[in-house]
């Protein structure tokens, strides 16, 4: 059994500012960390490694410092790390990102299961998993809170909906995107951390993946960000409820009923 886990590195904080002159996001100086949901994806893969001896490959597209995220995955127990890095990949929207990831999955020789986090916490689209599934013509199991694979090539999952759940099952190979409810990720062990630094990371660019310049990066991206701004929150006027808890509660009820809110 072979599992590929796709990982994104995101800014450590969502408290990013806009450069008042260039109107670009100021991301310099903010260090990168692994997208939190992707840690659940790694854990899901490692549970399959524990159970079936699955081989786990961590895959990421990004600048060279994304190596850090691959090392973390290997320190948790992934067998291998593959970095997709090239200037040509920069500025990719979700479609162009998925094109590169799908090509890399093929280059690695495919897998029984390709795992994703439910969404990246920065750009927050959740689109890359379903897009890769579509590009590889694989079934998708998105937003899963339960996931079981059997040795005879079946997948059985529970997808968490907004107001319920639904069981989905079928044949492998498949793509799954995981929710944090799926599992409690393990910590890296000192032994694995040490081992992870002995492993080589394979790096591919567009030539290795046999991709045309028009399919990748900005050129391969149909969407364009035309404006970036900080939302101006309309400041709410806050009224303090004075007195004892009882008085304050009474006071609130009066005000709410005056305004026909209650």
């Amino acid at each position: 059994m072979k599992i590929i886990v796709c990982l994104k590195q995101v800014p450590e904080t969502n408290n990013v500012k806009i450069d008042p002159v260039t109107h670009n996001l100021q991301r310099n100086g903010i260090s990168g960390v692994i997208n939190s949901f992707d840690v659940n994806a790694i854990e899901a893969a490692l549970e399959l490694k524990d159970r079936y001896g699955a081989e786990v490959v961590a895959l990421t597209m990004g600048p060279p410092d994304y190596e850090k995220t691959l090392r973390l995955a290997m320190a948790m127990g992934a067998n291998e790390g593959v970095l997709l890095s090239s200037r040509g990949f920069a500025g990719a929207d979700t479609l162009a990102t998925a094109t590169v990831l799908a090509a890399a999955v093929n280059k690695i020789g495919g897998a029984d299961l390709i795992l994703f986090g439910r969404q990246a916490v920065d750009a927050d689209t959740g689109q890359v998993g379903p897009l890769v599934a579509e590009k590889l013509d694989l079934p998708q199991y998105t937003y899963v809170s339960k996931l079981n694979l059997s040795s005879d090539g079946q997948i059985d999952a529970v997808r968490m909906l907004d107001g319920g759940t639904v069981r989905v099952n079928g044949d492998l190979p498949a793509v799954a995107t995981v929710r944090s409810e799926l599992n409690e990720p393990r910590y890296a062990t000192p032994r694995n951390i040490k081992l992870s630094f002995k492993k080589d990371i394979v790096v591919y660019d567009e030539k290795d993946l046999d991709l045309d310049d028009s399919e990748i990066g900005q050129a391969g991206s149909p969407t364009i960000v035309t404006k970036v701004y900080t939302p101006t929150a309309t400041p709410k006027v806050t009224e303090t409820l004075e007195g004892s808890a009882k008085e304050a509660a009474q006071n609130l009820l009066t005000k709410l009923s005056e305004k026909s809110i209650l």
């Binding site: 927050d124 960000v225 404006k227």
Partner: peptide
């Protein structure tokens, strides 16, 4: 919205 709704962007798909 992105970055936990801290930033807004306008996005189009012209082609």
């Amino acid at each position: 919205p992105s970055y936990g709704d801290n930033i807004m962007c306008e996005i189009t798909c012209p082609k």
